[in-house]
């Protein structure tokens, strides 16, 4: 990894409606770190209780399926999310749900950005595109 360049950083929030972590989706993240595709900057979990209250959940306290090795996530927490973040995510959650939020760096882009920077080019925009907007644009720009 080119340590001088910070590649674009994004997040994914995934809700587990039953309040427990299941499946191998998160495990696949490991396979993306090793070859330098992404770096995990932060991993946090938020629970929404039946009464609507929300709070962060420590990794050790997470209920998870037998197919999920929770120990491999130790050390991924860096505490970047504040109460506003918790509230924002919680607004989209169902009662009793558990949401994992992964903040990750798109490391794959770092060499590209470094090379362009070295050639005098500069990054002026970076962001994600909303799926609804994408479909809308497909509709709006479709040839008559």
């Amino acid at each position: 990894m080119d340590r001088d360049v910070l590649a674009p950083v994004a997040y994914l929030a995934v809700e587990f409606p039953a309040g427990r972590v299941t499946g191998e989706g998160f495990a696949l993240v490991h396979d993306l770190v090793a070859p330098g595709v992404i770096a995990v900057l932060d991993l946090e979990f938020i629970a929404k209780e039946a009464d609507g209250s929300v709070h962060k959940v420590r990794l050790d306290d997470i209920d998870h399926g037998a197919d999920v090795d929770i120990t491999q996530w130790q050390g991924a927490y860096s505490g970047l999310l504040d109460q506003d973040d918790v509230d924002t995510v919680a607004a989209a959650m169902r009662s009793g749900g558990l949401t994992g939020i992964i903040v990750y760096e798109n490391v794959w882009a770092a060499p590209m950005l470094a090379a362009m920077d070295a050639n005098g080019a500069r990054l002026v925009g970076s962001g994600s595109i909303d799926v609804d907007d994408l479909i809308q644009s497909l509709n709006d720009t479709s040839p008559a």
């Binding site: 001088d4 950005l113 990054l123 002026v124 925009g125 970076s126 907007d133 644009s137």
Partner: peptide, 24 residues
Amino acid sequence: MGLIKTGIKAAVAVKVGHMVHDRI
């Protein structure tokens, strides 16, 4: 309505890798 809504700046700081990585 357009797709590009965020992240357009005069210049996006990219050479902050050391600082961010170390602090994380």
